[in-house]
C-alpha cells in the first residue's frame, strides 16, 4: 500500500467515525468522492422537484375557486420556489453550480420526483397534493433532518416547518370538498384515487430492490428504509382518509393486529418504472416547460449581466 492510499484510508476511517458519532459533515471537511456525488445527485434532485413541483399546482392557480384559496396556493407555490433556491444553494456547497444543475435537469441526466409527472385534473388535486404528496415528502424529510451532511440537514429543518403548513392547507381543501356537494365529493374521491398509488411510489423501490440504500444508510444520509417510511406514511394517512369519509383505492388495505400496522397491496412497479423512464402523462410537458422558461429567459439574464458589467465599467471610469 503506498502512502497516498494509506492517507486516503485514514481519512475515510476518520470520516466514517465522525458520521457514526453523529457529527455533521460540513462543506470544507474531507469527504469520500462518492459521498459528495451521492449528495449532489440527491440534493439537486430534491431542488429540481421543488421547481418542477410548482407546475402542477401552478396549473390551478389562475382557476383557484376563491380569492382566499388563490392567495394560499400562491404563497405555497412561492414557498416551493424558495425551497428550490435554498436547496440549490445548499447543493452548491458541494462544488457544482446552479447552471450545471439546470443543464443536468434539462438534458434528462438529473431526475426530479416522478410524482410531478401526473396531471392535476380537478381542484381537489390541489388538496390531494398538499395532503398526500406533501405528507409523503414530510415523512421523508423529517428523516433527512438528521442527515450527516450539515447544509442538507439544516435545509430540511427549515423546509419541514413550511411543509407541515402545506399539508394542513391540502387537508383543509380535501375536508371542504369531502363535506361539500355531491360533485365536490366525487372530485375529492377521484383525486384520492389518482394520487394514492403514485404517492406511495414516492418512497422509492422496496428495500430489497433499492440500489443506493445500503451505502446511504452507512453514511447516515438516509436514516430509515424506503419500506419503513412508506409504512409510516400509510399508518398515519389511513385514519385521515377515514375521517374524510373517502375510500383509499386498495382492496388489500387492512389493519394488522399482529404487526401493529396497516397491510396494503403491492405497488404497480411497472407503472413506477414507466414514469421514471419518461412515460408519465406529463413528463415531456414538465421538462419542456422548464427548458422553455430557462431558454426563453436567457435574453433577460443576459441583459441583467450586460447592465451590471456596464455599470461596473462606468464606476471604474469615474473613479
Amino acid at each position: 500500500m503506498d502512502v497516498i492510499d494509506q492517507e486516503h484510508d485514514e481519512l475515510e476511517t476518520a470520516f466514517q467515525a465522525k458520521v457514526e458519532a453523529e457529527q455533521r459533515i460540513e462543506p470544507k471537511d474531507w469527504m469520500p468522492e462518492k459521498y459528495r456525488q451521492t449528495l449532489i445527485r440527491q440534493m439537486s434532485q430534491h431542488a429540481h422537484s421543488e421547481i418542477v413541483g410548482m407546475l402542477p399546482e401552478g396549473n390551478w392557480l389562475t382557476r383557484a375557486p376563491s380569492l382566499k384559496r388563490k392567495t394560499i396556493l400562491m404563497a405555497k407555490i412561492q414557498d416551493e420556489g424558495g425551497h428550490g433556491l435554498y436547496l440549490y444553494s445548499a447543493t452548491e456547497t458541494l462544488g457544482i453550480s446552479r447552471d450545471e444543475m439546470f443543464e443536468q435537469l434539462h438534458s434528462g441526466k438529473a431526475k426530479y420526483s416522478s410524482i410531478f409527472n401526473y396531471p392535476t385534473l380537478n381542484w381537489a388535486d390541489i388538496g390531494a397534493i398538499g395532503w398526500l404528496v406533501d405528507g409523503a415528502a414530510i415523512t421523508n424529510q423529517i428523516a433527512l433532518c438528521r442527515c450527516s451532511y450539515g447544509p442538507y440537514a439544516r435545509a430540511m429543518i427549515r423546509i419541514c416547518k413550511e411543509e407541515s403548513f402545506h399539508q394542513r392547507q391540502g387537508y383543509d381543501i380535501m375536508m371542504t370538498m369531502a363535506q361539500g356537494t355531491k360533485e365536490q365529493r366525487e372530485m375529492a374521491q377521484d383525486a384520492l384515487n389518482r394520487w394514492w398509488w403514485p404517492t406511495l411510489m414516492m418512497f422509492g423501490p422496496n428495500d430489497a430492490n433499492s440500489a443506493n440504500s445500503a451505502q446511504s444508510m452507512k453514511w447516515r444520509i438516509k436514516r430509515q428504509s424506503n419500506d419503513d417510511l412508506r409504512q409510516k406514511f400509510v399508518d398515519a394517512t389511513v385514519p385521515q382518509a377515514e375521517f374524510l369519509g373517502l375510500t383509499i383505492p386498495d382492496d388489500k388495505l387492512a389493519w394488522n393486529d399482529v404487526r401493529g400496522h396497516y397491510d396494503f397491496g403491492e405497488i404497480d412497479w411497472e407503472e413506477f418504472k414507466a414514469v421514471v423512464k419518461g412515460n408519465g402523462l406529463c413528463n415531456r410537458e414538465r421538462l419542456q416547460a422548464r427548458v422553455d422558461a430557462h431558454d426563453g429567459g436567457k435574453w433577460v439574464r443576459d441583459a441583467a449581466l450586460a447592465y451590471a458589467a456596464k455599470k461596473a465599467d462606468r464606476k471604474a471610469k469615474a473613479a
Binding site: I51, M54, L55, G58, L61, T62, K70, M74, I77, Q78, G81, G82, G84, L85, Y88, A289, D292, A293, H294, G296, G297, K298, V300, R301
Partner: peptide, 15 residues
C-alpha cells in the same frame, strides 16, 4: 402575474 408562476426567466424572478 399568477400566469407567470413556474415560467419566469429565473427562479429569483419567479419569487
Amino acid at each position: 402575474l399568477a400566469e407567470w408562476c413556474g415560467h419566469a426567466p429565473m427562479l429569483e424572478e419567479d419569487l
